[in-house]
Design a protein around this nucleic acid. Structure first.
Lengths: 339, 339
DNA sequence: CGAAGCGACGTAACCGGTTACATAGCCTTC
DNA sequence: GAAGGCTATGTAACCGGTTACGTCGCTTCG
C-alpha cells in the first residue's frame, strides 16, 4: 500500500535486500546482469530510498542545519541563496530555522535538529558566545557566521571589516578628502564596533596628521540624517562622511543635499554593505558578498564532515570597493603613502 | 561513546524503554514518581531523542519541504520568513531547496526529501503544471504557491491579482485620472498575464467609456523607462501609468520626470508589489504580503497533515492599496460608480 | 585431485525510536 | 476469598535501510 521499500524491490528482482542496497550505492561487487535487474525493478516500482531509515543506519543525514536570526530581507535571502547553491552542489539539504530572540525557543529548535543534520551553520550576532556554546549540541560540528570575535573555539566566518574600512579610508584619502567623519553603528553590534575601531586605526596609520572623528549612529536612515544635521549645523570643516552602513549613508546623503551641500563636490558620502538601494542611488560603498559567505560556510562545514580537518579558526571575507558617484577625485587631492 | 539513547536513559532510571518513551511523549499512564526519575535521567545524560529514528517509526518527520525557484531577494526572504514563523509555531521544521531551472536536478532534490518531510510547499511559476504534477511524489501532500491557474488538483495559494488591479484602477479613477495605460509584464509570467487581463476587465467594468491601453513590458526598470519614453514621444494624452510591478513603475517614474513631466500632477504613476524601494520613493502601489502567503501555505499544509481536510482549492491573498505621493486627487476628478 | 582463494550473494543483526501485547500488582465486588 | 478489572510497566516486534559475516560455486595451484 505505502511506498515501496527495499524489500519490495528485492522481491521483484529476485535478489536479497543486500544486493539491492549494494547496487543502489554503486558498490562494485554486483554482477552487471543482477544490477540491471535491480534497476529495472526500481524504476518499475518507482522506488525511492527512505531518507530517515538511511540516516538512522548510517548516522549521516546529508543535511545541514541553518540557524539564522530574524534578519533583514536582502541579507537573509542572499545568505541562504549562497548556502543552498553550495549545499546542493555537495549533495546536502538545508534545514532552516530562524533563531528567534527567545533563547528558550531557539534551544528547542536546536534540539529538534538532533539526528536530522550532520552539522550546523549558526549566525548569532547578539548571543553571548558562552551561552551560545552551551546551547549548541557539543557533538555536532558547527560553523559560526559573523560571531563576535575569536572568543569561541568553533571555526567561523566573518566579514573582514578591517580590510573594508581600510580600503574605504584609502579611497577617500586618495580622492582628496581630508576631513572625514565616521558615523558609527549601535554599540551592541559587533560589526559596528569593529568598523569604528578599524576607522580609528586606519586614519591613524594612513593619515596620522588628520583628525579621525567618530559620531554616534544606529544603522538607521534617520540616524544618518541626524548625523548630517549635526554636521550641517556644526562648524567643523567636514568634507566626507563614511557611514558604518548604507542605510545611514543614504539618510545622510539626503539630509546633506537637502541642507544645500553638493555631493560629491562639497562633501563625499560613503556607506558599507552595498544594499540594492545603494546601487540604485549610486552610492560609493563596500560590497559585502553575503552569498559567498553562506557558500563558504557550507563548504567549510562539509569539509569538516568529510574529515578534511576543521579548517583553522575564523576566515575573513574581504569586501570590495564600489566607487560610485557620491565620491569623486578632488582638486586638492594628494597621494597617500601606501602602507 | 556516542550520544545517549533511550536505552541509556531507561537503564539509568531503572525502567524500560517503553516507559521512557511514554514519559517523554506525555502519555498519561506513567506514575508521577516514575516520570520524575526518568526526567532526571534525561537531564543528567543530556538526552535528546533522535529525530531520524522517530520519523522512521512514526512515518512522520515533522518537517516540511520547501521548493522555491531562484527568487529575487525580498520575495524569497519574506516568503521563507512567513513560512518559518508559522512552521515553528506548529512545531515543524523547514527543509529548503531551491528549484533550479534544471528540472533534472529539481527532481533529484524532490526525491531527496522522500522520508524527510511530511509535505511539500512548491512555488513553480515557470513549470508547466503537467510536468510539475509528474515530478511531485504523488504520495506527498503539497500546497502550490502562485501556481498558474486552477489547472492542478492540488490546493494552492495565490496573490489575488484581480482584486489588486481592481483596487488600483478604482483608486486611479477616483483620483480623477482618465487616460490610464497599463505597462504589462513579460508574456511568460502568470502574474503579469493575470494583471493585464484584470486591467482590461476592470476598465471595461468601471469606466467603459475610457480607453484601456496596454503596453508591453518586462518587469525591469529599463522596461519601465522604455515605456515612459514611448509615452513622452507619443501623442496620446496619457495621465496615468499603472505598471504591472514596482520596478517598471520606478523606471517609468524617473524617465517621465527626466522628460519634464510632473508626477503626480501631470501624470500619475503606480506599481504593484510594494518592494522596499517603492516605500522609499513614495510610490503608490499595491502591497503584497508575501510573508502572509508563506505562513498561510504552511498553515494549510499542516492542517492537511493533521487530517483537517484538504482545504478547498486555491486561496487568494488580497493585496492592499498603498496610496502614496505618485498619485493625487486631481481637479477634474469625478466620482466613479461603485460596482 | 583436493585445498585454498575469490567473487557474488543471502541472512540477520543493528541503528534508535514507538507501541501492541503480555504481565504483574492492586482494588473492587459479590 | 476468588474472580474480574484497572493501571503501571516490561518485552519484543517493527519502521526501512546498511553491512558484517557466512555460504556457495568456481577458478587456480600445489
Amino acid at each position: 500500500m505505502g511506498e515501496p521499500t527495499i524489500r519490495d524491490v528485492a522481491r521483484r528482482a529476485s535478489v536479497s535486500v543486500a544486493s539491492v542496497s549494494r547496487a543502489l550505492n554503486g558498490l562494485e561487487n554486483v554482477r552487471s546482469e543482477t544490477r540491471d535487474r535491480i534497476m529495472a525493478a526500481v524504476t518499475e516500482l518507482g522506488y525511492v530510498p527512505n531518507a530517515a531509515a538511511r540516516s538512522l543506519s548510517l548516522s549521516r543525514a546529508h543535511a545541514i542545519g541553518v540557524v539564522l536570526p530574524d534578519l533583514h530581507g536582502e541579507f537573509f535571502s542572499e545568505c541562504v541563496r549562497g548556502m543552498d547553491r553550495e549545499a546542493s552542489r555537495r549533495g546536502y539539504l538545508l534545514l532552516l530555522s530562524n533563531m528567534h530572540d527567545d533563547s528558550e525557543q531557539s534551544a528547542m529548535a536546536l534540539r529538534a535538529m538532533r539526528g536530522r543534520v550532520d552539522g550546523l551553520l549558526v549566525m548569532a550576532p547578539h548571543i553571548a558566545p558562552a551561552s551560545l556554546e552551551r546551547a549548541l549540541p557539543q557533538a555536532l560540528p558547527a560553523v559560526l557566521i559573523n560571531a563576535p570575535g575569536e572568543v569561541t573555539s568553533r571555526p567561523g566566518l566573518r566579514i573582514d571589516n578591517r580590510a573594508g574600512v581600510d580600503a574605504m579610508v584609502r579611497h577617500l584619502l586618495d580622492s582628496g578628502y581630508r576631513n572625514i567623519v565616521h558615523v558609527a553603528g549601535p554599540d551592541g553590534n559587533v560589526d559596528a564596533q569593529e568598523r569604528a575601531g578599524a576607522f580609528r586605526d586606519a586614519m591613524q596609520r594612513l593619515a596620522p596628521d588628520l583628525p579621525a572623528r567618530i559620531m554616534a549612529g544606529d544603522f538607521t536612515e534617520e540616524g544618518g540624517a541626524a548625523a548630517a544635521q549635526e554636521i550641517l549645523e556644526g562648524d567643523a570643516p567636514i568634507d566626507a562622511v563614511f557611514a558604518a552602513n548604507d542605510m545611514m549613508a543614504i539618510g545622510c546623503l539626503h539630509a546633506l543635499r537637502a541642507g544645500g551641500k553638493r555631493v560629491p563636490e562639497d562633501i563625499g558620502v560613503t556607506g558599507f554593505d552595498d544594499v540594492p538601494l545603494a546601487r540604485y542611488l549610486d552610492l560609493t560603498t563596500m560590497r559585502v558578498r553575503i552569498a559567498d559567505i553562506g557558500a563558504r560556510a557550507v563548504a567549510r562545514l562539509v569539509d569538516m564532515l568529510d574529515g578534511q580537518g576543521p579548517g583553522d579558526g575564523t576566515e575573513l571575507q574581504a569586501p570590495e570597493l564600489m566607487a560610485r558617484s557620491t565620491t569623486m577625485p578632488r582638486a586638492a587631492s594628494s597621494a597617500v603613502p601606501r602602507a
